[in-house]
């Protein structure tokens, strides 16, 4: 008899406890900073693409979700500093397992991940993201390629200054630039 009342007491006490339920569609809590969300193809500070079309991301991908086709830059039509750029870049989100191996493989920090995850769709074709969808937005001072190199005469100028000048890859470059700050504050390099 007393046990039954005790049981109801437990239930009743929950009336005064904080609600744990998240109000998802109305309020979206930010994911953990390192959450693996959809990818971004980053840009240099002048708007040129960081991707050099090396296909290392496609090689690293365990699910074969990335398709890259490289092409040569010319002086008239330049998409990235250096020789090559990706003329076709696709990520198939119906296969991507968000493991991040492509991010690790990328030599220019062109490919990074955001925390965006609302990707459901009713068509498999729409889940294949093309380069237009993956490219980072144009921030201030950026110009849609193709255009000539604005930050120097060769691609070297882009990479030597890259740490202090991250372009749009805010998530990826921050660690390196803060490291740089720490060393400059410490005085030793």
């Amino acid at each position: 008899m007393l046990d039954a009342i005790k049981g109801f007491g437990v239930t009743f006490s929950h009336m005064f406890k904080k609600v744990v339920t998240e109000k998802y569609p109305e309020v979206r809590k930010p994911a953990a900073p390192r959450y693996h969300g959809r990818h971004i193809l980053n840009r240099h500070p002048d708007g040129l693409e960081k991707c050099v079309g090396c296909e290392l991301c496609a090689w690293a991908c365990p699910a074969d979700a990335i398709y890259v086709e490289g092409a040569d830059n010319t002086d008239e039509e330049r998409y990235s500093p250096g020789e090559r750029y990706a003329s076709v870049y696709q990520i198939n989100y119906a296969r991507c397992i968000f493991c991040g191996l492509c991010i690790e493989a990328c030599p220019t920090r062109s490919l990074t991940m955001s925390n965006e995850y609302e990707l459901a769709s009713d068509s498999r074709a729409d889940l294949i993201f093309t380069k237009e969808q993956l490219m980072a937005p144009l921030l201030e001072g950026m110009e849609q390629p193709p255009h000539p190199m604005r930050l120097g005469d060769s691609e070297k100028d882009y990479y030597v200054n890259a740490l202090g000048n991250p372009g749009t890859s805010a998530g990826a470059e921050r660690a390196a630039s803060s490291e740089q700050q720490a060393t400059s504050q410490g005085g030793a390099v």
Binding site: A31, C96, S121, R124
Partner: peptide, 10 residues
């Protein structure tokens, strides 16, 4: 279709 491996509850 819902991508993700696995997709989070949201």
């Amino acid at each position: 279709y819902l991508p993700g491996c696995p997709p989070r509850p949201e």
